[in-house]
Computed example of a mutant assay.
Amino acid sequence: MEPNVRFWITERQSFIQRFLQWTELLDPTNLVISIEKIEKSRQLLLTNEDASRGDLEDKRIQEAWKRSLSTVHPDNSKLIPSPFRPAALLPFTAPMVFLSMLPVKKLKSMILPQVSFYTYSTIFNLVNGNASYDRRPHESVLLGAGVIASSTFFGLLPRLLQVKFSLSTVLSRNVIPVLVLAQLSGMNVVASRSLEPMRGIEVMDKEGNVIGYSRKAGAKAIKDTATSRVVLFGSSAFIPEVFSYFFKRTQFFLQCPWSLWTLKLSCTILVMGLMVPVSFSVFPQIGRIQCSELEKEIQSATEETELFYNRGV
């Protein structure tokens, strides 16, 4: 069995345990681990099938799990490119979220942040989504291009209306952009991973044996991940806006107007720093689904009452 799958199936963690686990996996040093070190860690885990993350006395096994879980895709056992590993989400998207929420005077100033944000989000979702179904390279390219274009268009739409009609209310300047960003972040997951509920993803028993391919499991995986993205980016955009709204009414802001952007950027990074591990921890990495909820052909192929699938990040 793939070590990462084995870990997530056997380690039935609570939300708090998953949160603490992700704080380790999101360590920025995981972006620069050498391939040689990752291969050695994987070899250690493959030759020690009984190795548990709870083996506190064996530091080598602890470090091996950390390297494997943070750098290797559980479906195909391939190395995840450094810019799209889970640990890269915060440093790449926090500045983009901050720039996307800045007040606009000209629409041109918003095009690059929006394009950058949705391009990165789409590729991140494609790379870290379920990879157990057949997918040709050109399908991913065409699907990704369409998702980027549509997400960027709908992301710019409220800003376009704001500039065209000179809207300056709190609703148009602050509330609507936050709602649009949160909803589009969830829809980006649904669209970029839309092949999963169409073709079905692998479902397996507790031993890692593949029972079949389920479209219903694919739909559930996307729904859970999309929900976590709405929570992540919705909170990361909303909380700094609230702080900024009240900060602009203080005497300090009147004396130092430039401090608003420093506060807003700092707040965005701090909120995202907390919300990234929270969003990854809301649902287990390897999801569980009752066999009775799956297709009839899968139910007839096994006597298990509960099956597992990779939710994706």
Rank of each mutant, 00 (worst) to 15 (best):
Q43R: 15
F238H: 01
T23S: 12
R135E: 06
V278I: 13
V175D: 09
L161W: 03
M204L: 04
S41M: 02
Q183P: 05
L90W: 04
L56V: 05
Q251W: 13
I269E: 01
I16D: 12
V278H: 01
D224Q: 15
V170D: 14
P113E: 06
Q290T: 07
L90I: 04
I16L: 14
L179A: 15
T122W: 00
M275Y: 04
C267G: 03
L46F: 07
V271Y: 00
G218C: 06
L156E: 11
F92M: 13
E241F: 02
R18Q: 05
Q43W: 15
S279M: 02
F153H: 07
V97I: 12
E57T: 15
R12T: 05
V178P: 12
R199E: 11
P284Q: 14
F92V: 14
C256T: 08
L143H: 03
S151G: 11
L179S: 11
K59C: 08
E49R: 14
F233L: 03
M101Y: 09
S281G: 13
C291Q: 03
A237Y: 01
N125K: 08
S300V: 08
Y245W: 11
A217I: 03
Q13K: 12
K248G: 05
I38F: 09
Y118V: 10
R67L: 13
V163K: 10
S168A: 11
Y118G: 02
F247T: 04
P177G: 11
M272L: 06
S166D: 13
L89A: 01
T268H: 02
S52E: 07
V242N: 10
L112I: 11
E36T: 12
L294P: 01
Q255I: 06
V230S: 09
E207H: 14
L265N: 07
A149E: 05
V282R: 06
A237G: 15
